[in-house]
Write a protein that binds this DNA or RNA. Structure first.
Lengths: 240, 240
DNA sequence: GGCAAGGAAAATTTCGAAATTTTGTCCTTT
DNA sequence: AAAGGACAAAATTTCGAAATTTTCCTTGCC
């Protein structure tokens, strides 16, 4: 993926102290949240060396809370600590993307199977509601920065989260969320992922139908295909 | 599991600075490693409030590197940060143990299936070697602190690691390792887990045989049972 | 030209005091 | 008795200078 780019900081990292939650949140925690977002949204580029002096200025925080925030992100795999040489944003690779995609497919189907097995009526109602909510906003090719992009992503995520919400395994959901976010980092890195040739509404509708019919094998096959199609698009971009 | 116990620090946390690696390792990283071990070995008890002044003394490190180490452990789920109130060791619960055990079973069989599918001759040789090595040291009820306990555990882990080594998914192996360590924390918390009524050597031999025969369904069933039996023992202890 | 050594500048890490927050105790009010 | 307020002590978090390490540049040697 070419040379390590210089650190690039977006405007969200310059948010004033005023926006810090007033419920005991520390400067370190606040910086952590902001840094995390900037990494996940690729405003801090993969592989980039994190210059502490620059970050201290940009995030309006001292060295100690800054290091603390970065250390916490190291524990999450989003930064890499290089002893005596500071921190670096975790890098990306085609191999990792492939690993994530395959693993997401497995984890998602595992969680889905468990959910179908354990889900109550209320869970079904929630899935139906999330599908309905999603379909009310047809996927479109919106201009970069459009609020509709974020809104669609929110509804999309809500839909997928609802499918597995009844799996009964908090740890599995945490693993799933982690993989999702790392996958999103790739998607954002590769700009807008194309959905040409895909009928997303139909894909989502068919997934929901299989789930609500409690047909685990079909639902799992459909969700795995859904994930694979997205990853294929990204892999194609990386290869070119 | 009763009231939150007071912080208890074992001798390993008082290791002198001399033992810090001389390859650029920071004080923060050194403290992280030691703290991590102490949490995983339950020398720092689950749920315990981590008193920074005491830790600073016990681990011979200042507040900044100490907080940094603790933050990193927060990112790994081993500590919980409580805004303006410091850190706490992550707690344990019967529900979490159950979640981990079930998830470990699923993850292990997934990794095993992939390994069986992808494993080379060299991988098979490694599995055979690990089994042989393990069986050369029959499991016994050794006195606490006996080096044989650690040696057996090392060989045991080596055996299980070898089974899944060819799965080809670094992220899956990381998730698996994480779950294993969290599970080990429970095991250590519950003192020596009993293996009465179990013929561990036979269990290990049968698992290896199925794996080397490339019989994924059988191998997965056996490994899942192996994990379930261990978890059942722990669940029984928690219930009593 | 390539490599090694030395020194200055830049960057990173740590320290410990100051600033801030939380906790605990005592007293008053309802 | 329970709740609230005030205040001191204890604990936590942060700051920024000092200490330490790394990086970069220059010089000299082969």
């Amino acid at each position: 993926m070419g040379a390590t780019p210089a650190i690039s900081v977006g405007i969200s990292s310059a948010i004033a102290d005023d926006e810090r939650a007033h419920d005991g949140e520390t400067l370190a925690a606040s910086a952590y949240t902001r840094l995390r977002q900037d990494i996940l949204k690729c405003r801090l580029m993969p592989g980039a060396k994190l210059r502490l002096e620059a970050l201290r200025r940009d995030y309006s925080v001292g060295f100690s809370p800054l290091r603390e925030a970065l250390a916490r992100l190291t524990g999450e795999g989003l930064t890499i600590v290089e002893g005596q040489r500071g921190f670096r944003v975790a890098s990306v690779s085609a191999g990792d993307l492939e690993d994530i995609a395959r693993l997401r497919s497995e984890i998602e189907t595992m969680a889905l199977r468990m959910s179908i097995e354990k889900g109550s009526d209320a869970w079904e109602a929630d899935v139906a509601a999330a599908l309905h909510h999603l379909l009310l906003l047809p996927h479109g090719r919106w201009p970069a920065g459009s609020p509709l992009t974020d809104e669609w992503s929110r509804r999309h995520k809500r839909f997928h989260d609802s499918l597995v919400a009844a799996c009964g395994s908090p740890r599995l959901l945490a693993i799933r969320e982690d993989l999702f976010e790392h996958s999103e980092r790739y998607r954002r890195l590769l700009i807008e992922h194309g959905t040409e040739g895909r009928d997303l509404a139909t894909e989502h509708r068919e997934i929901a139908n299989a789930v609500l019919a409690r047909n685990a094998p079909t639902a799992c096959a459909l969700i795995a295909g859904h994930i694979r199609a997205t990853a294929s698009t990204m892999m194609a971009i990386i290869s070119s």
